[in-house]
Design a protein around this nucleic acid. Structure first.
Lengths: 94, 94
DNA sequence: TGTCTAATTAGCCACCCGTCTAACTATTGT
DNA sequence: ACAATAGTTAGACGGGTGGCTAATTAGACA
């Protein structure tokens, strides 16, 4: 969970995720939207992959990245549980 | 938003938030639950306060900390929007 | 086999983060 | 005023992070 929130804490990476929410994109297409070198972008992809927030597949020379919403939903669940426990201090389960 | 996710990315801080979801607690009471010096704990409180995930008030010698769910809900909203855009690529607004 | 293109990996650097000890501030009580 | 208690602030230190350039891998194509 650490690495998920850490991955989300960078604005570039959040923007990458937002772009991927529109659908699969290649590394190059994503990189072209930022004022940053490809290696730097590649680093961000690696961080997002490590957190399992994105998946990748190679097709010829290009690598296609796509959003993996499962982990994102786990992050939502963690924070929501916090808020619920807080608001429901009276008679919430364990 | 950066500082919110960054604040959430540390396990000690997430545990502090979980404890505070049970209700207001003093700095000392919180610190006693961790194998860490008070200054280190104080640092974590500062990070959480800076992200506005917690609030504090002094009462005599003690400082009481409490959870601020507003910002937590904003974090949920951000991630939920991501997931929704992704799943609803067909005919979602904007 | 070369060579071009897409992308990552390697190595470097400045800065940030989490922790500690030591020192300080604030409040209570004698 | 002094001492005790609760907590923060200051400064140092090792390890991690985000950016860069240069080198490398992987695939397409002549």
């Amino acid at each position: 969970m650490d690495i998920v929130f850490k991955a989300l804490s960078d604005p570039t990476r959040r923007e990458i995720l937002r772009l991927l929410s529109q659908g699969e994109k290649t590394a190059g297409e994503l990189a072209s939207k930022f004022d940053m070198t490809k290696p730097s972008m590649s680093h961000h992809f690696a961080v997002l992959k490590d957190a399992e927030l994105i998946s990748s597949r190679r097709e010829g020379q290009q690598i296609w990245y796509s959003l993996n919403t499962t982990v994102a939903q786990e992050a939502i669940a963690w924070v929501m549980d916090l808020v619920e426990r807080s608001s429901g201090k009276r008679s919430k389960r364990k």
